[in-house]
């Protein structure tokens, strides 16, 4: 009789990386459907192109790195879905693929693969495309067959900078020009609440993020509701500021992270020349995570009896 001998515990909990990542994909699905309704078949096709690129890149990287492939753990799918959602629906497929390849190869795998990246790959991929291919991301198509006066070309945030006003309900439903996965707040909210209920994410970073943007809008005399309902705020606060690897681990750390994201987003939105700052704010705060983690480390019960120092 050959018995397995290993250290305790001999029970494993019900969660797994694959399950968690799968749930995140599931939570993003309603938004993909909304994007299909709003912007037509180009939207889901772009998402699929990004997913395929991500899987191929991750698999090839693993082969090159002589390690078991992590392409099947759904984390690359999450990255691809998130990245594609920050793109306009008419973004050329090759541009989407290029951004995804950058996200997976440079931002994720070169830093050591899942769990080791210091920046959120989707956000970094998006920023890469913004800088490298401003033309491809320059215009945002309006929803198909919109009964309203079509809002074309400029996004609400860009328009708001010019003093325009918007119907809150249409903003909430995403019935305006914008990136394919950023506009429909309703479906993003459904996905986020689903993840909250499944205990995959929490609200410790999300609420301060949104809260600070709201307060800053109020202080600067902007339309608070419109500010919260437009741009990449919902996608960023719900799905990117809750990423495990690139955000702090403790409650306190997450609050600091959220506050920082909110502040930087507001500074860019209200005081800089760019209309949107969610991606930059998350990227910047990603870089501060090790520092935040260091100063918000949990305090052991009963203190620590140090033998050195």
């Amino acid at each position: 009789m050959k018995l397995i001998v290993e250290g305790s515990p001999h029970f494993a909990g019900p969660d797994s990386t694959r399950k968690i990542m799968g749930l995140v994909c599931l939570a993003l699905l309603p938004t993909v459907i909304a994007a299909t309704v709003l912007y037509g078949l180009a939207a889901p096709l772009l998402v699929l192109v990004c997913i395929a690129t991500a899987l191929v890149c991750e698999h090839l990287c693993c082969i090159a790195m002589h390690r078991e492939s992590t392409a099947d753990d759904f984390s690359a799918v999450v990255t691809a879905m998130l990245l594609s959602m920050t793109l306009p629906a008419d973004c050329p497929f090759w541009a989407g693929a290029l951004g995804t390849a950058f996200a997976i190869v440079v931002v994720k795998m070169l830093f050591g693969g899942i769990g080791c990246n210091i920046a959120n790959p989707a956000v970094a991929g998006r920023v890469f495309l913004m800088v490298a291919l401003p033309a491809a991301l320059g215009s945002y198509p309006a929803p198909e067959g919109t009964p309203l006066d079509a809002i074309t070309g400029a996004t609400p945030l860009a328009e708001m900078a010019g003093g325009a006003h918007f119907d809150y309900l249409q903003l909430f439903l995403g019935n305006h020009a914008g990136a394919l996965g950023e506009t429909c707040i309703l479906t993003l909210l459904i996905g986020y609440v689903f993840l909250l209920v499944m205990k995959v994410v929490d609200a410790w970073a999300t609420l301060p993020f949104i809260g600070v943007v709201a307060v800053m809008s109020l202080i600067t005399g902007n339309d608070v509701v419109a500010q919260l309902l437009s741009g990449g705020l919902a996608l960023g606060a719900f799905f990117m500021a809750t990423d495990y690897t690139t955000t702090p681990t403790t409650q306190k750390g997450k609050i600091i992270f959220g506050l920082g994201c909110g502040l930087i987003t507001s500074l860019i939105r209200f005081f800089a020349s760019a209309p949107e700052g969610v991606a930059f704010s998350i990227l910047f705060m990603n870089m501060l995570v090790p520092l935040i983690d260091k100063y918000t480390a949990p305090k052991p019960e009963g203190g620590v009896k140090r033998a050195l120092v």
Binding site: I20, T70, G115, C116, T249, P298, P300
Partner: peptide
């Protein structure tokens, strides 16, 4: 599989 820094272990530790 690799650590994804989810922080569940930190929350689960009864001794902080």
């Amino acid at each position: 599989t690799p650590c994804i820094k989810c922080g569940r272990c930190v929350r689960a530790c009864p001794l902080g």
